[in-house]
């Protein structure tokens, strides 16, 4: 069960209180009725589904009710940051910054540990 930092409640809260809401920073086309079928399919269906760093939306549905954005590694499931809705895509902390927060010798991805050992 994930622990998610809500940027509005300014607190880490249990995943139970949240609902995942898909990829972040996908703007609804302003001229939506004029776009082509391909553009519509792109807007409505195509998602990055990154293996690694992903930008996604969550809603603190059983908390403050706000939608917000998060940057997460989909392999380790670690959150790199969360930020309020409406803000532009935020750069993730650099490796040095991350290292300052997280103790060293931390495994980066689950992929690296599955099925074998060094």
């Amino acid at each position: 069960m994930l622990l998610i930092h809500c940027p509005y409640c300014e607190e880490d809260r249990s995943e139970l209180e949240f609902r995942w809401a898909g990829e972040a920073h996908i703007a609804r086309p302003e001229n939506i009725s004029a776009i082509t079928d391909e553009e519509f399919a792109e807007y409505f269906f195509l998602r990055n589904n990154e293996k690694g760093l992903t930008y996604e939306r969550w809603r603190h549905i059983h908390g403050c009710g706000r939608f917000f954005n998060a940057a997460r590694d989909t392999v380790s499931d670690r959150f790199l940051m969360t930020y309020k809705a409406g803000l532009a895509r935020q750069p993730v902390p650099t490796a040095e910054e991350a290292a300052a927060i997280i103790e060293d010798k931390t495994v980066e991805t689950w992929e690296a540990v599955e099925g074998d050992a060094r």
């Binding site: 609902r19 809401a21 703007a27 609804r28 939306r57 809603r59 549905i61 009710g65 706000r66 939608f67 809705a85 409406g86």
Partner: peptide, 13 residues
């Protein structure tokens, strides 16, 4: 309600 909030908060704030 969730659907409406989604549009209100993120598309039509």
């Amino acid at each position: 309600l969730h659907h409406m909030e989604d549009y209100l908060q993120t598309e039509f704030p």
